[in-house]
């Protein structure tokens, strides 16, 4: 499709301009506010101060604890959800033939039902079983959307996976671990890293479950963000938003590098979900 070669450059630049303004523009006020001391109405540029950032990085602030809590929760959630999801996805993708679709639907259901419905029900459940207001309960609640999401991603891989490679390898005398390391893992790697990253992100951006199950005992970054929002400190809010977006940004860069050398390019592209 090279029909209008003359117009090419102009329309290409125009497309760029539109996309940048569409997708980047909303971040400008956030970034500007994070460096603002005051930003009265008609001014286009705020009076600069690094107060918010100093607060974020100061050792005695609540922010540091919140970041550590969020990071810890997200890391553990991400790891555990792989541990639970991997065997299930493999079984569903390769071995289970009967009831396959039903089991899959049951396992993936938590990412299809809105968080508020789950959070309220699970909150009552955890209140009865004494899991609420605890680290463990919050962790379990973060796993509710994370595990199905990992299963969904990994199942997509195993549905198109040829087990013949493994069989061949075993036939030639390789051990179970060797087969995993030399055949399965290299093929699985890109999808697995995506699954790790996205389950990390699910936990990282989780507000509803943390606030319901944690009951305010466990302060995470999203909770701090919401309390800053209601207190009206826009500078701190901007800075927190920037910290909050950082992992997402890293993931985009990672995945846009990964996409090119990926075996399943098309599949990958359509697998990034809005749930996160």
């Amino acid at each position: 499709m090279r029909r209008n070669g003359v117009n090419h450059g102009k329309s290409y630049a125009f497309l760029h301009a539109i996309m940048i303004s569409l997708f980047f523009l909303p971040f400008i006020p956030l970034l500007a506010w994070s460096f603002a001391q005051q930003w009265r109405f008609p001014d286009l540029v705020p009076t600069v101060s690094e107060r918010a950032w100093l607060y974020v990085f100061s050792t005695h602030s609540q922010v540091k604890d919140a970041i550590f809590n969020s990071l810890g929760l997200a890391a553990v959630t991400s790891l555990l959800s792989q541990v639970v999801a991997y065997p299930a996805a493999r079984a569903l993708g390769l071995y289970v033939k009967r009831w396959n679709k039903t089991i899959r639907l049951l396992l993936i259901a938590p990412i299809l039902i809105p968080g508020i419905s789950i959070a309220i029900g699970v909150h009552v459940l955890f209140l009865h079983s004494g899991l609420s207001d605890q680290w463990l309960g919050v962790l379990l609640s973060h796993l509710i959307p994370a595990i199905p999401y990992s299963i969904y991603l990994l199942y997509g891989f195993y549905a198109g996976y040829d087990i013949g490679y493994e069989k061949q390898f075993r036939l030639l005398g390789a051990g179970r671990l060797q087969t995993f390391r030399l055949v399965e893992l290299p093929l699985l790697r890109s999808v697995l890293s995506l699954s790790i990253l996205f389950s990390f992100l699910i936990s990282w951006s989780q507000y509803l479950f943390t606030v319901f199950i944690g009951g305010g005992n466990l302060i995470t970054l999203p909770m701090l963000l919401f309390s800053t929002l209601s207190s009206g400190d826009y500078s701190l809010m901007g800075a927190l938003c920037m910290v909050f977006v950082l992992p997402a940004l890293i993931i985009v860069i990672f995945s846009s590098i990964g996409v090119k050398k990926d075996l399943f390019e098309e599949k990958e592209a359509s697998r990034v979900d809005p749930i996160v």
Binding site: L30, Y207, V272
Partner: peptide, 25 residues
């Protein structure tokens, strides 16, 4: 490649941040 990056940029951004950004915009 750059367009691809631009397009994917806000996919993993948490909705809360998007909402606050819209609020300030």
């Amino acid at each position: 490649r750059w367009l691809h990056f631009l397009l994917q940029f806000n996919l993993p951004v948490p909705h809360v941040v998007g909402a606050i950004a819209i609020l300030l915009l």
